[in-house]
Each structure stands twice: as C-alpha cells, then as structure tokens.
Amino acid sequence: MSSVLFLNLAWQISTLALVALGLAIVFGKLRIMNMAHGEFVMIGAYAPVITSSMGLPGWLQVPVCLLTVALVAFALERTIIRHLYGRMFDSLLATWGIAILLREAVELIFGRGYQSVSPPISGTISVLGADYPAYRIAVIIGISIGFAALYWWNARSKVATRIKAMVGNPDLAEAVGINTARLSAGAFVFGCCTAGLAGLILAPTIRIEPMMGLDYLIRSFFALVVGGLGSLEGLGIGAGIIAGTQSVLGAVASQTYGYLAVLTLSILFLWLKPDGIRSSSR
C-alpha cells in the first residue's frame, strides 16, 4: 500500500467517523433517523462564511459554528424532534422536511452559489515519503486525539448509560430521577454540534453550497449500520469499512465500482448482520 493511499484512508476514515459521530448519538441512542444530519454539516461549513462576512477574526469560527448549530438544533429539538422520540419512521419523515427547511433557509441567507474557504494551514508537507496537504495531516491528528479523549470520557461518564436507560424505558428513567427531556435535548444538540464541527473542519477541502448535506448523510447511515449502533469502536470500524471500500476500490478499479461496492456491502450487513459488526452473533 502506497503511503498516499494510506494517508487518504486515514483522512477518509477519520472525517467520516467525525461526520457520523453525531448521527451515532442521534440515531444510535435517541433512535431518531435524522435525515437532516448532513444539513448540520452544511451549516457548520458555512461558519467561516459567516465570520468573514461579518468581518470577525478567524479564531471565532469555532465558537460561531458551535453556537449557530447549537441554537438551530435546540430550537428544532424543542419544536419538532421532542415529539418524535419512539416514532422512528415519523422521525425520518419529519427530519426530511427539516432538511429541506434548513437548505432553503441557508439559500435565502447566503444564496445558491458556491462559497470558498481557505485552509488555516496551506501547502503540503512530506509524510512517510509522500507530499500530503498539511491541513489534512493536522485534521487527521486532531480527530484521532478527539476520539481518544471521547473514548476515555465515554468509558467513565454516566451520561451514555443514562441515555441508554432513557431510551430503553423512559418512564423508569424518569422515575429514577433522570431528567429525560433535558438529557435527550442535550444529546440531540451535542450530536448536531459534532456534525457542525465536522462541516467546519471539512470546509476548506470541499465544495460549500446549500445542497451539500446529502453527500454526508447516506454514508454516515451506512457507516453506522455496518459498524453497529451504540459503540465508538463500532463507529470506527464502520467508518473504516465504508470509507476503506470506497478508497481502495476507487484507487484500484473506479469510483463507480467503489460506490456500488459500498452500497452492496451495506445491504449485506443490513441483511445478515443488522446489529452491525460489533454485535455478538445472535
């Protein structure tokens, strides 16, 4: 395996894992099939456009991104999403509507056209004997550290357990003193914020326009079902299989075959191993 292919894989897997992380929480934990997930990635990617149009310094991109996404997510959770817990297919339909709503809203504000964002670090550096964009290297390292921290926190924190308890049996969870309304709102907003952050991080490397969200939605769903809902390792493995298949087949055969292989693989997993690769055989 050439070192560029290796770095490409690392980039694809880490960014897909970050994009899918929020969906893992919202779909995996809250059982909301969030079809508007990609739109939160899109809003995050517009954060640099917001700061530059308001003349704000670049370092404000992160707080602006998180604040914008959190506000939008919170408003949607309070008005729409909270009625949909336990109604999975209804959540799919309603969030489909939300996705259109968010796209149209962004189009009204920023217009239909493409936006361009410069990376904070430009140029290429030599890694493992290959010239690779410096920004991408930084992102791969950053996401890896972030996931390690999350893994560490997840193993210690009680929040994940509480969410699980809440979804499993909301009445009981309420009875043992879990504030389910606050917990689910928090989980939804957190999930959307990670998607927004992913959008912000990807922004200098992709196209930015109101319709971009759909690109990220389907791959995230497939990464989740392949990896299995409910664990960070599963998310990593799912992202690895989906991004890896596309990358490797894209490199040795063609992107079309890579895409078809990803879809076929997803079908096989959904059929034969619906709980994902991490589940015990049953």
Binding site: I218, F222, L263, S266, L270, W271
Partner: peptide, 18 residues
C-alpha cells in the same frame, strides 16, 4: 424497523447508478 427500509434505499441507489 429501519434496516429493511435502508436496504431498499441502497437498492434503489444501486439501480439509479447502474
């Protein structure tokens, strides 16, 4: 649940691509 729905989704995406 959602798995069958997602399978039909993937199938139609394959069909559209082909």
């Amino acid at each position: 649940g959602p798995y069958f729905s997602l399978i039909t989704l993937a199938l139609v995406m394959i069909a559209e691509q082909i």
